[in-house]
Amino acid sequence: MSTKRQLINEQGIRTDGRGVDDLRPIKITLGYLTHANGSVLYEQGKNKILAAVFGPSEVHPKHTELPDRAILRVRYRMAPFSTEERKSPAPTRREIELSMVIRNALESVVLTELFPRTVIDIFVEVLQADAGTRVAGVTAAALALADAGIPMRGITAGCAVGKADGKIVCDLNDIEDKEGEADMPVAYIPTLNKISLLQMDGLMTQEEFKQALSKAINSAMKVYQLQVNALKTKYIKREEVKK
């Protein structure tokens, strides 16, 4: 058996040079696509995620429409070139499940009851994956929805936390995700103070879980601030361009 790699050194520095509470650098490009009603290119470290929103529009097939609210249709896909080894382009069980997970995380913020008998299509395309794509997908999809002008109760921000070398770390990278002891993606709605997604893989004690959850919420708040800034500056920037 190979020896276990050290994920955090004595100074508390992680494999990519971050501290335990640091997030990877985040870059948000709103309105990245011209044809979609709302879109965003969300980059978090090596993660590159493209989210696009269409609708609300007429539902096809008709029997899937709901008389009292709009349906959300989320498609989460990983590009064949997104991982280290080529991924088969066929939708996997994991992708189908994550599509559902992202939809559930967003359904609580979108005011679907305003547009009965319609559908809102959300596409989350992972162009490059480096752990934490489901929460990055939720974050990107929430931005694309706001960019499309779809009424929402708030903006969902997501961040994963986990346990590596016995310490709780924020925003895991690929090595920590694979070799760490636990991984917990959390999506949080700061304005409503509610959690809309919480999953966990691995083992943590109750104390560790509490610490991890509070760290996840803090990290999500940092992500949320970046989301708000991106949405606000999209419109202010125009003037700078003109000058």
Binding site: P151, R153, I155, I189, K232
Partner: peptide, 28 residues
């Protein structure tokens, strides 16, 4: 941005806003 509290108290929620727990919040 959506979710931002605009005001609270005796106000009515107009276009693109909703009332949640006595606060008016933006939806777009």
């Amino acid at each position: 941005v959506p979710g931002e509290i605009l005001t609270s108290g005796y106000y009515r929620a107009g276009e693109n806003t909703i009332k949640l727990d006595n606060s008016i919040i933006a939806t777009k």
